[in-house]
Design a protein around this nucleic acid. Structure first.
Length: 273
DNA sequence: ATGGTCGACTCTCGA
């Protein structure tokens, strides 16, 4: 339904399509990513968990598919990348707040594409609520708050990525059983909502109010996709001035049907800019 | 059922 609306946009409108995908290793997912790009031709694809050092990132395959690409990764862990059909400007790795570690810089890329500031993040998962990594995660949302407070009212702004938080009870398969999970605990939800309250709109939820719309299904959970035991933890948020330009937002489950799928799938949004 | 499966890489960790 929404797909056909996108196709019925008045001629002359300029569509800007942005997708986000936690690839869980870019080298292990090229058989999915490159065909998906060639088929859908999004303006921008934000990727997380590339799990590769920069020297080994498969840049040429993106360029051969017609995309510029920027990336920052670490051996085995983390790593983010942005592919774009238009030139990528003002690239920033990490928060640039004087506190960046190599891990921070392999979890956040910000850039400007087509006049839109895009922040692609792989937010720390947090491990357990008693683990110091959970405090690191909460600190990350505070640093994101500082970063976005500089940009949210100045220019078209997008926040995309694996944010490792399910914002509302309807965004997890078992809100009661998962209340102490690091991606649903009240502390992380509050930290996320504080950033959102700066003036960011959850673009998927703007167009879709149905429950059981998930972007992540744990490999370890038996038959999780068939039984619809998932999480909505991958997100596209936009500031108000850009959100009013959104025409649709879709979870694309097709990448999960391929051989060796990621545990996440693709979330895509369309803007008439 | 306190499980389960991946990916990268040294055999164990992170998700």
């Amino acid at each position: 339904m929404e797909q056909s609306q996108a196709l019925q946009m008045p001629s002359g409108s300029n569509l800007f399509t942005v997708a986000t995908y936690n690839v869980n290793s870019i080298r292990a997912r090229m058989h999915i990513v490159i065909p998906w790009l060639k088929q859908h031709q999004p303006s921008v694809l934000c990727m997380q968990e590339t799990k590769v050092v920069d020297a080994d990132f498969p840049r040429a395959a993106f360029e051969e598919a017609g995309y510029f690409v920027v990336f920052r990764g670490q051996k085995s862990y983390n790593g983010v990348a942005v592919a774009s059909r238009l030139p990528i400007q003002e690239v920033q790795y990490g928060f640039q707040d004087g506190e960046d570690t190599p891990e921070d810089q392999a979890r956040l890329i910000a850039c400007v594409i087509n006049g839109v500031r895009i922040v692609n993040t792989y937010v720390p998962q947090g491990r357990e609520i008693t683990d110091s990594m959970f405090q690191y995660k909460l600190k990350w949302f505070e640093r994101l708050n500082s970063l976005f407070s500089r940009w949210v009212s100045r220019e078209p702004l997008l926040w995309c990525g694996d944010l490792n938080v399910a914002p509302e009870p309807m965004d997890v398969y078992d809100p009661d059983g998962l209340k102490n999970h690091v991606c649903f605990h009240e502390d992380v939800r509050r930290a996320f909502h504080a950033v959102k309250a700066l003036g960011l709109v959850d673009i998927f939820r703007k167009f879709n109010q149905e429950p059981k719309q998930y972007t992540f299904y744990d490999y370890r959970f038996p038959k999780s996709v068939e039984r619809v035991k998932g999480w909505r933890i991958d997100h596209i948020l936009a500031n108000e001035s850009l959100a009013v330009r959104a025409t649709g937002c879709y979870i694309d489950m097709e990448p999960r049907l391929a051989e060796k799928p990621s545990d996440h799938t693709v979330l895509a949004a369309v803007f008439d800019v």
